[in-house]
Simulated assay, not measured.
Amino acid sequence: MADQTESSVVIDSAPGTVLDVIADFERYPQWAGAVKEATVLEEQADGRAARVQFTLDAGAVRDTYSLDYTWDFADDSTGQLSWQLGESGVMRTMDGSYRLASSGTGTKVTYTLAIDLRIPMLGMLRRKAEKTIIDTALTELKKRAEQR
């Protein structure tokens, strides 16, 4: 991904627990504030989501979009989940990833994101929006995974 924003957090939960939270897309509306609905549209042969449709309401940005997922994880649940934008009314690009790595007794999660909207936006404002999205997502993921 070119021109992306990245941030990390350490979550006091095992990689398997964090991965389970990330992979449970249909529960995102319960803990990810801007996600109002999430539906798995396609699954891979192993049962993991291949395409997911989201309905987002982040105040100024409202959209229904789909993401196509690629899973690359070891048996210990460390690895990477990547996605690319499938369809969207507002975005041209929404590519990103979660990288999970063991960190002491917890998990270091690194989130990368690159967004390009159909409406013009200064690069500085776009990066600030990406940073806000990432920081919010990591905070919400941390809270959810540590409650398990």
Rank of each mutant, 00 (worst) to 15 (best):
V109R: 00
Y65P: 05
L41W: 02
G106L: 01
E42M: 01
R127Q: 11
T93W: 11
G106I: 02
S66Y: 05
E6H: 06
G16C: 14
A50F: 06
A101F: 12
G86F: 01
P120L: 02
A137V: 05
A14P: 14
K131T: 15
T55M: 07
E37C: 04
G104R: 03
G96Q: 05
T112K: 08
E6I: 11
S82K: 06
A74D: 09
D135W: 01
A145F: 02
D12R: 08
T139N: 09
D95T: 13
G47Y: 02
A49W: 07
L81N: 01
A2S: 09
T132Y: 04
L67A: 01
T70I: 03
R92W: 13
G89T: 09
L41R: 12
T107C: 01
E43H: 12
R48M: 14
R118P: 15
G104F: 03
D68F: 02
R126E: 07
I22C: 13
A45I: 07
D75T: 09
L67N: 08
S77E: 02
Q147D: 14
S102K: 15
L81V: 06
R62A: 01
G106T: 00
T105H: 10
E140D: 05
T93A: 11
E37A: 03
A14N: 07
T132I: 10
Y69W: 03
T5M: 03
Q84I: 11
A49S: 10
V40S: 07
L141I: 07
